[in-house]
Design a protein around this nucleic acid. Sequence first.
DNA 1: GAGCACTGC
Length: 791
Amino acid sequence: MAVIARKGSPLVREIREKQSMGKSRQRFWELAGSKLGHILGVERTAEQVGAGADQGDAGFREELKFSQHLEGKAEAASDFARSKSLSDQRQYLPIYAARDDLLGVVRENQVVVVVGETGSGKTTQLTQYLHEDGYTRTGLVGCTQPRRVAAMSVARRVSEEMGTALGDETGYAIRFEDVTSPNTKIKYMTDGVLLCETLKDADLDRYRVIIMDEAHERSLDTDVLFGILKKVVACRRDFKLIVTSATLNAEKFSKFFGGAPVFHIPGRTFPVNIIFSKTPWEDYVEAAVKQAIAIHMTSGPGDILIFMTGQEEIETACYALAERMVQIVSSSSKAVPKLSILPIYSQLPADLQAKIFQKAEEGTRKCIVATNIAETSLTVDGIFYVIDTGYGKMKVYNPRMGMDALQVFPCSRAAADQRAGRAGRTGPGTCYRLFTESAYQNEMLPNPVPEIQRTNLGNVVLLLKSLNVENLLDFDFMDPPPQENILNSMYQLWLLGALNNVGGLTSLGCKMVEFPLDPCLAKMLLMGKELGCVEEVLTIVSMLSVPSVFFRPKDRAEESDAAREKFFVPESDHLTLLNVYLQWESNQYRSDWCNDHFLHVKGLQKAREVRSQLLDILKTLKIPLSSCRMEWDVVRKAICSAYFQNTARLKGVREYVNCQHGTPCHLHPSSALYGLGYTPDYIVYHELVLTKKEYMQCVSAVDPQWLAELAPMFFSVKEGDTSFLDRRRWHDEEKTAMEEEMEKLRQEQAEATSREKGRGEKSGKQQQQQVAMPGLKKGLTYPMPKRRMGL
DNA sequence: GAGCACTGC
């Protein structure tokens, strides 16, 4: 595959240098006398951020506030809507004219692919048409959405249109919230929720119709649902499936479902004039800034939207735009129209994000600089000009090293078209593409690589196994993930004890499926039961399930670092997280306390929600809460028992290598172990992420004896000797051993499908023999520190 | 001595 080479942006470098040379940004804003200062958020203090979050009532109201802007689905805010009755509005939608034809096609076919363009009204109307046509007499009409806010806001809108209370005839279900009742006929939900429901009810008997909305987005959950629903369609003649999609994927979806008819509903958008670059740009950040200034100075009214790859580029572009505007204003004798420069990316605090939806002052043009958050997740009206750099960041997974990397890739043609479409929502628009037409035609992929092909499949494998899918390599994926990826995930699950030697689910595996967690975290929780520290592990697992709770604003880096260090437990980042949570708890979960200690309130609140959800599941599994009190070593042992695959051995200053595959692993400067006077010989890490180096995130020191005890297939201690045998370094010759192992697993699995089940699990010893390898002798040098937690 | 595309259970 040919890809466009990506060169670093000289502009980003230049501005970074300028800032580090003492001309701080804050000073710049003062000099410029500009009101733009707040935009970059550089002067905001922790207190301000916290205060902003507090007003939002645990984020819920914020979500609602945004919901009306999201995906353009709740049209209640438009002037048109206010002047018409709800039923008039329904008739005005493009889908209304196609209502009877559409219902006819649905009646005659079990599966229908609906191509509904933006603004057609499909999301709110399809469910109601099916309800009116009598489908809800014998079951639910379910409609899945890729995002929580969409499920909530659409359900609210539909219940308004139907004149019933939300949660009565129309309801929604998202994680932590089930707003439905026995009376519910139309149910909106995230695809993840429906996937969870298939665990309890594989045939989805409650549902008469499922609508998979926005299926072209191809989330991991959607792709798994495709395969599952195809089976349901085959075994339930009364079941209907409607898949909505963008034009580009319609044929593919139709083919997957055995030639299902494709039904088109026109949308209500305006034409967009596409302008390609004649030659490729050396620096697309610079090019985008120039283009935006050119539009602002010469083109008619209308806001500008620029697509960039990430936070740093966005900040650079905003800075450069502001700088150029100051130059222009000071050198021009005439009045220059104002430009309001607004960054947007998901990590930006919510109150700053909201600014992009505020109306600009009269005579001021908005210029929004966004990541691909503006591609699908949120919609801003009034955009007439789009500037598309043609790049975006994507997370890719390397199964062999178990490592994630966030990398810049050229976006796909579908994504470029989606971006261009953002200029045509309010009126005819223009899209400036900073790449050549030839690059678009010949070098860009038609569609983005679906998530299922570039992610860790641990959860997917566990889920499908619990749905009794015998052979995963035969599962009907629309785009099958790489075989190595599946087999590797199976191997990891086998190591954890979730799968037996014939690839079937063990009793441990069955319990692990119950938790909405990565397999390793679920295992940690269940090992907490064995070791008597459920309470502690529960908190750690919850904290690991949310993004980092440590808040580190650039302008108060040292201060926030010092605040973080106060929570450090020297031998463990995991215990540091536990410490943070316990301290928060003993301070009555107060927000102001979080702000004082540079902690994200929202992150901690989410962790608390996750914790309570997991607690409920523990209750249903009849697992009692146990605590190890102050014996923190027991907690580290539980961590070790779930993450022994992520064991790394010391090999230099703060440098480690993974014991399994020899990948170099570095301690991250934010780790509690980083500044220690000693470095432990053996550690386990939560995950490995490639940025500038391969950095381990969330690290705990472990005792090698534990490894031998908890992961005998990898590690052992020689009898009568304290020396430690690190048996495995699977880098070169051993790699083939793994492949053999996988081949064996695959064969056994294929045999098992044809043979009757009932072969018991092999003993641990046999498992050990399967992977046993002669190892290297290593001295045991690291005395484990016996430290106790506390501030 | 350093990094955060975007979702979801």
